[in-house]
Simulated assay, not measured.
Amino acid sequence: MSAALLPIFVAAALFITILAVGLSALLFLRARQERRLRRRLVADEPSAGPMDARSDGLISDLADSGRAIERLVDTDNETPRLLVQAGWRQSREQSLYYLAQLLVPVIAALIAAAFWLGKPAEASNLNYLMYFLMAVIAGLLAPRFYLRRRAEARRERIAGEVPLFIHLLVLLFEAGLSTRQALSSLVREGRGTLPELNREFAVVTRQLDAGGDSTEVLRNLEQALQVSDLGNVLGVLRQVDRYGGEVREPLMETLANLEERRTMDMREKVNATSGRMTVVMVLFFFPALLIFVAGPAFVSVIKALGNVAG
């Protein structure tokens, strides 16, 4: 890298840094103005001490700035659904995520800038400029990647609780309980048995107690979680709650279909694992076995040929 291009790269890095700082300050001021406007419109906010209110307000302002950055990354408005799927329904949990969305890129940029300033004199500035941009981009995408992985893992745990959930529902319905009573009983008694579904149905029971329509509430839960196995069960509950009729047979049919599908998935996994094991045996076990079996004979042949030649 020639010395003539060094001022250009330094100026470009400074421009990017100033632009990022200015954008962050603008988003922070805008979020603070929106929060002040909400405080004026909402008169029944809970009272808090001055230090708590100040720290809470600062975190909320920073979280609003992170929410603005998230809107730049999330063009499909997928983040609210992922937050629900990850189990982060509380406003404080969501604020912490948006706060991470703001701070992680800043921290990554500062670390990359520190490495840039401490680089050797003969190192290329272009490479460090690329590292700086890659660090900023990785910082923007890392919180969303973590959120997506957490939501996917929790959906898998919810799907694993569905068979036991069906069995408990059948027992409660056979005991003469209605849909709302059965869900309330599961929320009260199933905290240790169905930890993930218990959290979701606790929200459902609160909405039902507040006067919400059961069909609409269950449909919203199905659309928010997007777990196909649970969606089938919720569809049966909606039909029974609206039209009435026998609930045991549809639930048992749903359970049978679920177990059959899981059996097929398990067979596919076993077949895939068998194929991988075959490749491993061919690459590692078969050469060792060939050396162990044919090695002595091969050595004897070589010695015999050597004696004949001698």
Rank of each mutant, 00 (worst) to 15 (best):
F145W: 12
L126V: 14
L234F: 01
F173T: 10
P120F: 08
L133W: 06
L62F: 10
D229I: 04
L6S: 15
P80W: 01
Q239M: 09
M134N: 11
A159V: 03
T75L: 13
M252G: 02
G231L: 05
L99V: 02
L82S: 05
L126W: 07
F165Y: 03
A63Q: 00
A43F: 05
L99K: 00
S2T: 10
A304M: 02
L62T: 01
V204W: 05
I166V: 13
V84T: 08
L141H: 12
K269W: 12
A224M: 02
V162C: 07
V203H: 12
M277H: 03
I111N: 07
P46K: 09
A86V: 02
V104K: 03
L225Q: 06
R71G: 02
V280N: 06
S2A: 14
R206V: 03
A202G: 09
T273N: 15
L133E: 07
A63P: 00
V187Q: 00
V240M: 11
I18D: 00
E122W: 06
T79F: 01
Y128R: 05
V203M: 11
R89H: 07
A53W: 01
R188C: 01
T273D: 10
L258G: 00
L5F: 14
L62Q: 06
V308Q: 04
N232H: 13
M51E: 04
L126E: 09
D56A: 06
R262F: 03
R30L: 13
E253S: 13
F284L: 15
F15Y: 10
V279Q: 11
S185P: 05
L82E: 12
T75P: 00
R40T: 09
A63F: 00
R71F: 07
A31C: 04
R248P: 01
E189V: 07
L186A: 03
P120L: 09
P287M: 07
Q226A: 10
F145N: 07
G87P: 00
L29I: 14
